[in-house]
Design a protein around this nucleic acid. Structure first.
Lengths: 184, 184
DNA sequence: TAAGTTACTTACTAATAAGTAAGTAATCAA
DNA sequence: TTGATTACTTACTTATTAGTAAGTAACTTA
């Protein structure tokens, strides 16, 4: 991919996390990158094309990371997932799923499908990780792995939301206890 | 409060929950209510005034409800809180805190303060409820009540977000397990 | 009953949004 | 070396946004 195109996607990713999909415009991208508005439209004719590119990149990154982690013990894999969210917390970013979930009803069908794909990937991976981690007695939790995965995902997502409102410390407070819960 | 003014706030509340604060316009209110755009501006000169009214109403409703519940056992109080979220789930609504958290960085200072006030109220109430419920052995959980309150709030918030993406059943899946966790 | 006051409507403005059409300079491929 | 392709810019259009100024009809109060 060309340099400008990559920078556009990266800037859009940051904007979705910082302001939300409906709250940024092409001007917010063309300005910082010192290109013209029409240059953004050249690479991404409609805003939806850009939105999809942002999600596609996130899906790709996630699959790549989890592939890298796949030989580590499950408790380390979970720790690595948490550290991804921790990094976002330190940058005052929220996660893409939460950001797009808020705007979900305003999105066109192809974008909604992409958001669903992104969420399904995360849930599927976490479910398997919890399942095999429990089999090895690395984790202890009640109920099905898929339910526990949903619970942990909701914790991670909303702790970034709450951290934005109540300060970054609440993220640590929540995630420390979550990891504790999984062990005990 | 006058009838029209109430209807405007109620419509705005629904719009914030359905589309997000930055994704609705005064036209989305004046249209359904069959009034003119300027009528909305008459009651709420700037959009922020309307946003604050929506949050103020939510705060008031919350304080009223928790006052009503205050003589019930703590496990029933928690069940009532969950049922409020359940009602939102059935209407495909997300919660105000999550909706405004996404747009938080685009909000003016007085609105940010209101969002913080709303979150603090919820957290404070839930912390106290968990604390006294644990003292009566109605609940069992690890760690401080305030951390557990944060965890439960994040679960409730994001289960509405995830339910929108993955279907309303995930809300039940999550909340059933959460209530189970608190008991066991 | 005259003078506010309330709750609007009519008719705007200025700014910003997404998106497009036509032109251009530089590179690439035959 | 010509002709196409790439990656833009210039210069628009159309729609929508928040917001306002001036007018009006109905009611209220002195």
């Amino acid at each position: 991919m060309a340099e400008t195109k990559e920078k556009i996607v990266e800037t859009a990713d940051q904007l979705v996390r910082k302001k939300g999909y409906n709250a940024f415009s092409y001007k917010d991208i063309s300005g910082p990158l010192e290109i013209k508005n029409a240059a953004v439209h050249y690479h991404f004719p409609a805003k939806m094309d850009l939105g999809i590119a942002v999600i596609d990149q996130e899906i790709e990154k996630f699959l790549e990371k989890t592939r890298e982690w796949s030989n580590s013990p499950e408790d380390e894999q979970i720790a690595k997932l948490f550290s991804v969210f921790d990094r976002h917390n330190k940058q005052d970013n929220i996660c893409l799923v939460a950001s797009f979930a808020t705007d979900f009803k305003t999105l066109e069908a192809p974008m909604q499908a992409k958001v669903q794909e992104m969420s399904a990937n995360l849930l599927e991976w976490l479910t398997k990780c919890l399942e095999s981690g429990r089999a090895k007695a690395l984790f202890k939790f009640e109920g099905s792995a898929s339910t526990r995965a949903l619970i942990i995902i909701t914790n991670l997502q909303s702790s970034l939301l709450l951290a934005r409102i109540m300060g970054p410390a609440v993220f640590q407070q929540i995630t420390n206890q979550l990891l504790e819960d999984l062990r005990s």
